[in-house]
Amino acid sequence: MEKLIPIEMNINNQHYKLEVSPSKRLLDVLREDLDLTATKECCGIGECGACTVLVNGKAVNSCLMLAVEADGATILTAEGLASNGRLDALQEAFLEKGAVQCGFCIPGQLMAAKYLLTQNPHPTREEVEEGMAGNLCRCGGYERIIEAVLSVAEKGEEQL
């Protein structure tokens, strides 16, 4: 049996103390151990972005990170975007602009967009295309997703 390792994480402003097996990915711990299932698994090899979360403010594929590596980290998942029942501006924009179809890629898309706008609050369309390229959408909703991200960018930083 694998030796369990104690780790602590702050996820969506909540402190978690748990013991994880070293071979568990951050994605597995979020989904299976903590039932935070907004973060999705599709390709499992960092190509699709469905499992994107922010670790210490940076967008990463949680399928390519061991849970033990997140020891001490601050993590934001799609569950943590809305606060006090109020949707984040990006969530609103995704609904408003029709970015959501089947929805399976959407939590990952939102996290990638969140990261993009924290890095670059007023991106050009090209920068949005580049920043969101790590997130596949098979419904082909890219035009709407890009428009949604740009619409939030236009509203300005204060609303992020």
Partner: peptide, 9 residues
């Protein structure tokens, strides 16, 4: 190299 998510790691 890879996507933004990959480059961050």
């Amino acid at each position: 190299v890879g996507s933004v998510q990959i480059r961050n790691r």
